[in-house]
C-alpha cells in the first residue's frame, strides 16, 4: 500500500490564510457580538433613525437596532450556509463516489441524475421547493442541499474514476476488502483537499442563494437573518426614505464573507494542486460569487 494521508495542516497559501483570518473574525463577531447588542427584534428607538452614538448603525423601519440585527442575522445565515454546504458536499461525495466506483448501470443512472440536476437552473428550482416547505432554516438547508449537491458529485466521480485504477486500490480489492471499505479508507482520504475546497465553494453558493430566497419572501419573515433583513429593508421603504443604513451593513457582511471564502477557496485550490499525493485533483473553476455549473458530460470535458 503506497498511499499516504497528509495530516491536517494550516493552508500554506497566503490567500487562504488571509481568507481564514477574515472568516474567523466574522465568525467571532457573529458568535459573541449578539451578547453585547441585546434583543435584535425589540423596538428600541424611533423607526429609520440614522446612525448615532446610541445606535451605531441606526434603526430599521420597525425601530430595531441595525447593528444588533446584522450581528444576529450573521449567526443564522452563516450557520445555514455552512450546514447546507456540508450537506451538499456529503451528499455529492457519496453519489459521486458510488457512481465512480460502482460503474455500469449504477454509474449511468447516478450520472444522469447528476447532470439533470446540474442543467436545471438553481434559483427557480429552489423557489419551487421553498414555496412548498414550511418557512425556516431547516427548510432552507433542505432546499440548498437538494439543489446544490450535483457539482460535488461530478467532481468526486471524476476523481474516483482516476483513483480506482491506482495500484493500492487494486491491491486492496484483490486482498478482499469490501467495496465500502475501499471507498472510505483507500480512496476518500485522498480527496480531502478537494472536498475542503468543495465545502468552501458550496458555502459561497449557499450564501447567495439563501439571501436571494429570503429576499423574495421565501424565508421565515419573523426570523432575523441577513436575507430577511434585506427583505424588510425593501418592504419598509429603505430606498424611498433614503435609509441606506438599513441595507448597507447586511450587504457588506455578505460580501465580506463571500470575499473571505473566495480567498480561502483560491488558496485551498492552489494548495490541493501542489500537495496532492498522486493525481492533481480536478479543482473548482475560478472563484465567482456563485460557482459555475458545468453542464457538459464528462467525456467531452
Amino acid at each position: 500500500m503506497t498511499f499516504h494521508v497528509e495530516r491536517p495542516r494550516w493552508p500554506r497559501d497566503p490567500r487562504a490564510r488571509l481568507g481564514l483570518a477574515l472568516l474567523g473574525s466574522i465568525v467571532l463577531l457573529a458568535t459573541f457580538g449578539p451578547l453585547f447588542t441585546g434583543d435584535p427584534t425589540a423596538p428600541v428607538a424611533p423607526p429609520l433613525a440614522p446612525p448615532s452614538w446610541a445606535h451605531l448603525l441606526g434603526t430599521t423601519g420597525q425601530g430595531q437596532d441595525v447593528l444588533a440585527q446584522t450581528l444576529a442575522g450573521a449567526r443564522v445565515t452563516l450557520g445555514v450556509g455552512f450546514v447546507a454546504g456540508l450537506g451538499a458536499v456529503l451528499l455529492g461525495a457519496t453519489v459521486g463516489a458510488v457512481a465512480g466506483y460502482a460503474g455500469g448501470w449504477v454509474d449511468d443512472a447516478l450520472s444522469l441524475l447528476t447532470n439533470v440536476t446540474l442543467v436545471l437552473p438553481g434559483l427557480p428550482l429552489a423557489v419551487l421547493l421553498a414555496a412548498w416547505l414550511p418557512p425556516g432554516p431547516v427548510s432552507l438547508v433542505a432546499v440548498l442541499v437538494s439543489t446544490g449537491w450535483a457539482w460535488n458529485a461530478r467532481v468526486v466521480r471524476a476523481e474516483v474514476l482516476q483513483l480506482r485504477r491506482r495500484d493500492w486500490v487494486a491491491a486492496a480489492r484483490l486482498a478482499g476488502e469490501p467495496p465500502l471499505r475501499v471507498v472510505l479508507v483507500e480512496i476518500l482520504p485522498n480527496l480531502r483537499p478537494l472536498l475542503a475546497a468543495a465545502l468552501v465553494g458550496a458555502t459561497i453558493y449557499n450564501l447567495g442563494a439563501q439571501v436571494g430566497l429570503e429576499f423574495l419572501g421565501l424565508g421565515d419573515p419573523g426570523a432575523v437573518t441577513w436575507g430577511t433583513n434585506l427583505y424588510w429593508a425593501a418592504n419598509d421603504g429603505a430606498l424611498l426614505t433614503r435609509s441606506w443604513w438599513t441595507f448597507v451593513p447586511t450587504g457588506a457582511g455578505v460580501a465580506a464573507v463571500g470575499l473571505a471564502l473566495a480567498l480561502l477557496q483560491a488558496g485551498l485550490t492552489a494548495d490541493a494542486g501542489s500537495g496532492a499525493p498522486v493525481d492533481t485533483p480536478v479543482a473548482r473553476p475560478a472563484p465567482r460569487r456563485l460557482p459555475a455549473r458545468d453542464g457538459r458530460s464528462q467525456e467531452t470535458a
Partner: peptide
C-alpha cells in the same frame, strides 16, 4: 461580484 446582485 462578491456582492449579491440585488443588493448592488
Amino acid at each position: 461580484g462578491a456582492f449579491p446582485y440585488f443588493w448592488l
